[in-house]
């Protein structure tokens, strides 16, 4: 178990992490989310000993990281930062061999060789094992680095934005691999993600950060809500449920209406629209007359736009009246 206790970290006068404490559950995926500069990468760096701790401590199974030899930490915690900048000509199998360094110090024994084979096979890299990593596609490259981390044979894996520069297909593939690492190999993964939808779909826990502090944390279903996300990202979110999964819409409002229009063909958009209006009213105190006026205006404009039949309009009016009563 990794425990982060009261970490304060600053660059010059700028406080990047302000008294952050966090416990990471074993055998799970924890996603760190937050806006740029919220301190996600710094927290990851501190927790994975890449950055020195200024104040506070990080405990690995109850022992302070500063009291453990770096070689020993490297056997327990692996961390992969953005890899696209690494421009070195080594083959995939050589890269994976580097992962054994903490265990063998550069001289491979049979155990190490077995582990290397295992990692290469797990990541399905056997065909390209002799290719140089600068000749690979983004997805293959990322897989090669993950294989190296696997060869390192650690319980904890920290990944800093592993989906950067990957296109959709490879991003999904990468997240599936990460899911498999937890399920099949009992790894514990902490991952910094930019795309909230990837976090919602694949993570077990989400930790939201803002201005160097952890604002919220919890299971995905508690975290992917309008209130939490609006606060964390300072942006208006819309959340849709689709087959029991939550999807966040955070694009421009026009696009949102477009998606509503599409839904309307199945008669769903109207409901969402109504709910939106009512939600708005419940938040702001508005007089009943104004409320009715706005609602009617909204609906007539909406209906006019979609050239609905009159009887639907009548039904809408009735619906408004009933809702008003309820309200």
């Amino acid at each position: 178990m990794i425990e982060i206790r009261n970490i304060v970290q600053s660059y010059g006068r700028n406080r990047v992490l302000d008294d952050v404490s966090l416990t990471i559950e074993d055998r799970s995926i924890t996603a760190l989310i937050g806006a740029n500069g919220a301190g996600k990468s710094t927290l990851l760096g501190v927790a994975s000993r890449l950055l020195p701790v200024i104040s506070g401590c990080v405990l690995l199974d109850g022992i302070d990281l500063r009291d453990i030899k770096t070689r020993e930490i490297a056997k327990a915690i692996a961390v992969l930062k953005q890899t696209q900048s690494i421009a070195v000509r080594v083959t995939v199998s050589e890269l994976v061999e580097f992962g054994r360094f903490p265990h063998c110090g550069g001289r491979l024994k049979q155990v190490d060789k077995d582990k290397i084979e295992e990692s290469i096979n797990f990541m399905d890299l056997d065909d390209i094992r002799d290719k140089y990593i600068d000749e690979l596609s983004g997805g293959q490259r990322q897989r090669a680095f993950i294989a190296m981390i696997l060869a390192q044979d650690t319980r904890y894996i920290f990944l800093d934005e592993p989906l950067n520069n990957l296109d959709i297909k490879y991003s999904v593939e990468m997240m599936k691999i990460i899911k498999r690492l937890v399920r099949d190999l009992n790894k514990t993964i902490i991952i910094v993600l930019h795309d909230i939808n990837f976090a919602a779909a694949y993570a077990d826990y989400i930790v939201a950060m803002k201005d160097g502090k952890i604002t919220n944390r919890g299971r995905v279903k508690d975290m992917v809500t309008c209130d939490v996300l609006n606060n964390v990202f300072d942006h208006k979110f819309n959340i849709i449920e689709h087959h029991g999964r939550r999807i966040c819409l955070y694009y421009g409002s026009r696009k949102f209406h477009k998606s509503e229009k599409m839904l309307d063909k199945r008669g769903m958009g109207r409901q969402i629209h109504m709910q939106k209006c009512l939600h708005h009213f419940s938040k702001h105190e508005v007089s009943k007359a104004k409320m009715k006026k706005v609602l009617e205006h909204h609906l007539s404009a909406y209906m006019h736009k979609h050239k609905k039949h009159d009887y639907i309009n009548k039904m809408e009016q009735r619906e408004i009246r009933t809702r008003e009563h309820v309200h």
Binding site: L50, V79, F98, G99, F101, P102
Partner: peptide, 11 residues
């Protein structure tokens, strides 16, 4: 391969 990379491997 870089500073972070080598620190990760306990160097």
């Amino acid at each position: 391969l870089g500073e972070d990379f080598s620190k990760n491997l306990g160097l």
